[in-house]
């Protein structure tokens, strides 16, 4: 019994020491180094325009317009109703509420054999075609829609889209903004992040940076 009591006391001391070392000192050291050497990364790669915060390079946003009804913002289940802003590139479908909500990320959990999933994907395809179809030469069909434009992302705040997805949206953005397609395509190329070290990850287009570059034109 005394053995057990001694061991419990030792355990308590050990936990307190470890809490100070691993729970306080260690994160503070990492924070300190971050502030000294990696300030922008530690803060979340924030982007400011004219001194005003407009987002993080790493976090996807909903580039949408508030829908108004009788002059007031429309809500559905307490969530603002929005429609995509055709002047901007759009991020991937999101499983969070509201879309691209970084304060409460969640998976959509759509199963591979589920009717719910099929309906959700079909709705995403329809929305994508409705937005981009009439600008795309020859029109869009479901078979031409890139998977990343129809499948919900994991985090719900995926900052990137595929190159194919960006190329399709470029036709719409160029037409709506009365820009030459070549100009928009050049921006897409410029904000395409290649594979790290030449083989890690997939080529992706950062949507926030691309949209901000469009506004700067």
């Amino acid at each position: 019994m005394t053995l057990l009591r001694k061991e419990l006391l030792r355990a308590l001391l050990a936990m307190l020491v470890f809490t100070l070392l691993l729970g306080v000192a260690y994160p503070l050291v990492v924070t300190g180094i971050g502030q000294l050497a990696f300030r922008s990364q530690a803060g979340g790669e924030l982007v400011h325009v004219h001194g005003k915060l407009v987002g993080s390079k790493l976090i996807g946003q909903n580039f949408a317009l508030q829908v108004y009804k009788d002059g007031k913002p429309e809500y559905s289940h307490g969530v603002p109703v929005t429609r995509p802003d055709p002047r901007y590139f759009q991020t991937r479908p999101s499983g969070t509420t509201p879309a691209d909500n970084d304060a409460a990320t969640s998976f959509a959990n759509y199963g591979p054999n589920s009717i719910v999933t099929e309906k959700a994907i079909a709705a995403n395809i329809a929305a994508y075609i409705a937005l981009n179809g009439r600008y795309y030469p020859g029109g869009l069909t479901a078979a031409k829609v890139p998977v990343d434009a129809a499948d919900t992302s994991a985090s719900g705040v995926d900052p990137d889209i595929s190159v194919a997805n960006a190329r399709i949206q470029a036709y719409r953005v160029a037409a709506v903004r009365h820009l030459p397609l070549a100009t928009v395509d050049a921006l897409v190329r410029r904000y395409t992040i290649g594979r790290a070290l030449g083989f890690l990850g997939e080529p992706s287009v950062d949507v926030l940076e691309l949209n901000l570059a469009l506004d700067r034109l």
């Binding site: 991937r92 499983g95 998976f107 959509a108 959990n109 759509y110 199963g111 591979p112 054999n113 589920s114 009717i115 999933t117 099929e118 994907i121 079909a122 395809i125 069909t141 479901a142 078979a143 031409k144 829609v145 890139p146 998977v147 990343d148 129809a150 499948d151 919900t152 992302s153 994991a154 985090s155 995926d158 990137d160 889209i161 595929s162 190159v163 194919a164 997805n165 960006a166 190329r167 992040i193 990850g201 997939e202 080529p203 992706s204």
Partner: peptide, 27 residues
């Protein structure tokens, strides 16, 4: 199967990963 039923093409094409990107990140 859900992707295919909805009409998506999941083969790898230029500029897209193809496959089951449902619940996966582009990068």
């Amino acid at each position: 199967p859900a992707q295919h039923a909805a009409g998506l093409h999941t083969a790898v094409r230029a500029g897209t990963t193809g496959g089951n990107l449902e619940g996966k990140e582009q990068r």
